[in-house]
Design a protein around this nucleic acid. Structure first.
Lengths: 210, 210
DNA sequence: AAGAAGACTTGTCATCGTAAAGATTTAGGC
DNA sequence: GCCTAAATCTTTACGATGACAAGTCTTCTT
């Protein structure tokens, strides 16, 4: 890697990674609407057209960022699950905690991942990453009610995910616990997780009332 | 209202309403990222700068659209609730159905209302509209468990909203039941609502396990 | 009827995403 | 080691956008 008079190499070398990193920061700072490809390029200290060689479009970059978000979400869920032992119900709660923690730490990214816009840049890698998080959750739910029918299991996968996702989504948007401390919010989140797990356990034992 | 040679009045007359209507359509057609003030103006058949006299910025227009969305959401919940009789639990489910039906009918608007961006254009009218929907839900939950403590009621308000909101949000983003028919999806939604109500009823009778 | 306020248009500016063409660096074949 | 091809980055350019300013037309007030 030779350098010009300025000391700056003509080739960035790791521009793709730099753009993803800059983009991710920018996303959290300015929101989805404030996200621009040119600002990413500026932060990576390259010209505004440089990103085109690594990402076909702005949606392509957002798709890559979202895909990595799914990977991290999966990791966050697994990490939290490893901290508890044995009990399937406890594991389900822990994964929910990991899910919520990731969302709270990356609110805009989380919204991007689960936004309608994300369907626009549906790449195979993004889809695969999303499926991986889904399966992790699915298995955790099924482990809680191994004796239940396939249908009940499916319904409880829906239900459990909806409760976890819904709670943190509402918090992130400021609809829930606007004035609560993070401490109090976490407690409210745990309460929702408790109610969810209890309902799953119950439904696993007795068929759902139609 | 006098008219020029073209037959078109110089003054639109109801431009504000026309912009809201056009904007709402545009939103569903092109998504939030495809939403532009100039396209709204074009559809209302006025110049690109005309909207400025009715909306200070593009966020101002989006805020108005979101506020009306909250009003319609509230109406959808009440309309569905009126179709069932008596039972508080049935009413809670019905409101959930109305909530989901509105979201399914206005997916992009719904995402806008509950997006992080919406906090940017936080007008008093938007906030009030959002609170109105919240209170409707809150009362429905509390009616199901009138004997419960204030704390339990609050937690169940969180929980019930999270389940309803989470389910439809996941469906809208294509995460849940991608290949299901609308019919099957509705059934899955009802199952989530059933599980939710059952859990609320149960929690109202016995204190939540910590 | 006259002046003021409101509604709308035209013109302009900085910025954006994207494409094309040129400059520089790296990599591979010999 | 060199020489060409490919990859990477820059410069330039185009159409579109949000916002602002200034001007034109309409309605309202008095």
């Amino acid at each position: 890697m030779t350098r010009g008079k300025t000391g700056k190499p003509y080739h960035h070398g790791e521009l793709r990674e730099a753009l993803v990193a800059a983009g991710r920061k920018l996303l959290e700072e300015k929101g989805l609407r404030g996200f621009t490809l040119r600002e990413c390029a500026r932060r990576a200290e390259v010209s505004h057209a440089a990103p085109a060689h690594h990402f076909a479009s702005i949606d392509d970059l957002l798709g890559e960022i979202a895909a990595r978000g799914y990977h991290e979400l999966t990791e966050a869920m697994m990490a939290e699950a490893k901290r508890v032992d044995g009990d399937a119900a406890a594991r389900l709660v822990a994964q929910g905690v990991g899910y919520m923690a990731f969302a709270a730490a990356n609110p805009v990214l989380f919204q991007l991942m689960f936004s309608r816009e994300a369907n626009r840049f549906e790449t195979p890698v993004l889809h695969a990453a999303a499926k991986s998080a889904y399966h992790l959750h699915r298995e955790a739910v099924e482990a809680v009610i191994p004796q239940a029918s396939g249908e009940v299991k499916e319904r409880m996968v829906d239900f459990a995910w909806a409760a976890v996702h819904g709670f943190i989504t509402l918090v992130l948007e400021g609809q829930l616990g606007e004035k609560d401390s993070p401490r109090a919010l976490k407690s409210r989140g745990l309460a929702t997780l408790s109610a969810m797990v209890e309902a799953v356990v119950r439904a696993g034992g007795a068929p759902l009332a139609s």
